[in-house]
């Protein structure tokens, strides 16, 4: 299942077990560069598990075993010499619940560039914080209170702060696991708008329970069911004329 555009991530025959339970049964997928790709499917279908494979978030789960290839621009991210911390500077993640550090707004952004040795404190760091906050469309709301704690912001603002934090280390790929499920419609719309802007520079992969969100915000959609990738294609095709009956049933609400 491939797309015409350049692929940022190439996944081949990916299988995953939690102890004896096989949660993914050999998934093949190409994730195009500079696009938004959405994973949809009912709870327990493996979409979040699959997303977490893409920056090795499953590594530390006891009993979890991964087989197959995940290639970032041709390089195997599961190769023995890969530094996971370094990998995650290339493939960042935004979670379901906004999780800013219990630090100032400024520090939330500056922390990672500093510990990764990308930059020291000073005017350059100030500029980087400003750029990241601007790209995440939250600068205007926080520019006068950079010293205040990030946790004091509203849920939607916190989520955009987390996106700014991810952007600060200039990743190639941003993974988003249900980034809007705790947000109201306006905050959700802002995040979706943001995704549309960010895809100019980054490849975005999003897991969502909200099918309309996948329809609105993504270029490509993958439908997962019981650990299998059932159908993958252009979002317009999936939502107007899916090829697989199981996709059709899920998309139209005839599921289960």
């Amino acid at each position: 299942m491939s797309t015409d555009t350049n692929n940022k991530l190439t996944i081949r025959d990916l299988k995953l077990w939690y102890d004896d339970f096989e949660a993914l049964h050999g998934v093949d997928l190409d994730i195009p560069s500079g696009k938004v790709t959405a994973f949809i499917g009912p709870s327990g279908c493996g979409k979040s598990t699959f997303l977490r494979c893409l920056n090795r978030m499953n590594d530390r789960i006891p009993g979890c075993r991964v087989q197959g290839d995940v290639l970032l621009e041709g390089n195997d991210i599961y190769a023995p010499d890969v530094d996971v911390v370094q990998l995650r500077t290339h493939i960042g993640m935004v979670f379901q619940k906004p999780n800013p550090f219990p630090k100032s707004i400024y520090e939330n952004i500056a922390y990672a560039p500093r510990i990764h040795g990308m930059m020291q404190d000073g005017p350059d760091m100030d500029a980087l914080v400003e750029t990241a906050l601007k790209k995440a469309s939250i600068w205007d709301e926080v520019k006068d209170k950079l010293k205040q704690p990030g946790t004091a912001l509203s849920g939607g603002q916190q989520q955009r702060l987390c996106i700014a934090r991810t952007i600060a280390i200039q990743p190639d790929v941003i993974l988003m696991d249900e980034p809007c499920s705790a947000l109201d419609p306006i905050a959700t719309a802002k995040i979706e708008e943001l995704m549309d802007e960010l895809k100019q520079e980054y490849t975005i992969v999003i897991v969502t329970h909200n099918m309309q969100q996948a329809a609105r915000a993504s270029d490509f959609t993958a439908y997962f069911y019981l650990g299998d990738l059932i159908e993958y294609g252009k979002t317009t095709d999936i939502f107007t004329a899916p090829k697989n009956q199981r996709t059709e049933d899920y998309i139209t609400g005839r599921f289960g």
């Binding site: 099918m211 309309q212 329809a215 999936i238 939502f239 107007t240 004329a241 899916p242 059709e248 139209t252």
Partner: peptide, 9 residues
């Protein structure tokens, strides 16, 4: 209802 796929068609 925001119909999709076959329903939309």
């Amino acid at each position: 209802r925001q119909p999709a796929a076959g329903d939309l068609r």
